[in-house]
Simulated scan of single mutants.
Amino acid sequence: MPSSPCAPEEVRRVACVGAGVIGGGWVAHFLGRGYDVTAWDPAPDAEEKLRRLVDAAWPALTQIGLADGASPDRLTVAATVEEAVADAQFVQESAPEKLELKRSLLAQLDAAAPPGVVIASSTSGYPMTDMQTEAADPGRLVVGHPFNPPYLIPLVEVVGGERTDAAAVEWASRFYKVAGKSVITMERELPGFIANRLQEALWREALHMVAGGEATVKEIDDSITEGPGLRWAFMGPCLTFALAGGEGGMGHMLDHFGPSLKSPWTRLEAPELDDTLRAAMVDGCDEAAGSRTIAQLVAERDQGVIDVLRATGRLPRQRAEGTDAITHTPSTMGDEK
Rank of each mutant, 00 (worst) to 15 (best):
G248P: 00
A172Y: 05
V169A: 05
E247Y: 12
A244P: 00
A167R: 12
E189W: 00
C285P: 07
G161H: 01
V85P: 10
A60R: 01
E157L: 10
A195K: 03
T185N: 09
A206G: 15
A270D: 11
G32R: 03
L190M: 13
V178C: 07
V210M: 14
D73F: 04
L31E: 05
T329Y: 06
D324S: 13
I184F: 11
E336M: 10
W232R: 09
G24Y: 12
R140Y: 13
P115A: 13
A43W: 02
Y151E: 05
A57S: 12
V17L: 13
L141P: 13
R13H: 14
R197N: 11
L31Y: 00
V158T: 00
P228A: 14
L61T: 00
H256G: 10
D41A: 06
C16K: 12
D41Q: 01
A88I: 03
R319K: 10
G290V: 06
K49R: 07
P191M: 02
A168K: 00
G334F: 00
T129H: 05
H208R: 04
M128C: 08
T80G: 10
A39Q: 02
Q296G: 06
S71G: 05
R140N: 15
S124I: 02
E205Y: 07
D87N: 12
A56Q: 08
D68A: 11
E10G: 08
G290D: 11
Q108C: 07
C285K: 02
L141V: 11
W171R: 09
T329L: 14
W265R: 10
Y176F: 15
A15C: 06
A78Y: 05
H29F: 05
S331L: 02
L297R: 07
A320N: 05
F257P: 00
A84W: 04
M186Y: 09
A135N: 07
D335W: 11
E9N: 09
Q303S: 08
D283T: 14
V17C: 13
E162A: 15
M186W: 11
R103G: 01
A56I: 01
P330R: 04
R52K: 05
E272G: 09
E219T: 02
T164N: 08
P271K: 15
P44M: 02
D275G: 04
E134F: 15
E219C: 03
G32L: 07
R163Q: 10
L198T: 13
P146Q: 12
R174Q: 14
E170Q: 08
P146W: 09
P127V: 09
G24D: 11
E157V: 06
A166C: 01
